[in-house]
Computed example of a mutant assay.
Amino acid sequence: MRKSDLINQIADKTGIPKVDVLVTLETMFKEVKESLSNGENIYIRGFGSFITKKRAAKIGRNIKRNVAVEIPEHFIPAFKPSKEFVAEVKLKTSGKTDAAE
């Protein structure tokens, strides 16, 4: 599902115009990015948490030049789903088979 599909589904289910749904989603994404950039985590009960994870400094390797490169400590965004979210996905996908099998 793409963002446009999500906007269409929300608009169909709520009756809210697509433009308003788009503005709301874009604002939500912007606020999540800004909060994580400022070091603030976001907790949404029943859905999950948007958090930043700290990656320790380490030594990497440039394979082409065979040179060791120091990678400094940094933070990355992550999403941790709630227990309810995980349980619902497991329940609804347990009967489905993978198309690649």
Results as ranks from 00 to 15, higher is better:
R55P: 02
F47E: 08
E34F: 05
L22A: 14
A68D: 15
I51G: 00
A99K: 15
I71G: 00
D5A: 14
L36C: 03
K58G: 01
L36G: 02
K90S: 13
V32E: 00
G15E: 07
D98H: 12
G39I: 07
R55M: 10
A78P: 03
P17F: 06
T27E: 08
G48P: 01
P77C: 12
K30S: 14
E34Y: 06
E88T: 04
K30Q: 15
F75M: 08
A11P: 00
I59D: 08
F29N: 11
E73Y: 08
R65K: 15
H74I: 05
I59M: 13
G95R: 12
L22V: 11
K58R: 15
K80W: 03
K64T: 10
I51A: 00
D5P: 02
M28S: 12
K3P: 00
A56R: 15
N8Q: 14
G48C: 01
L6V: 14
K33P: 02
A78E: 12
I44N: 04
I42W: 04
V32Q: 01
I63Q: 04
T97F: 08
Y43S: 10
L6W: 07
I71Q: 02
N41G: 08
R61S: 07
K64M: 09
N66W: 01
L6D: 02
L25Y: 03
K92D: 05
K96G: 00
G95M: 03
V67S: 11
K96A: 13
L91P: 01
D98Y: 14
G15T: 06
K33F: 09
G95A: 08
K92V: 05
R2H: 11
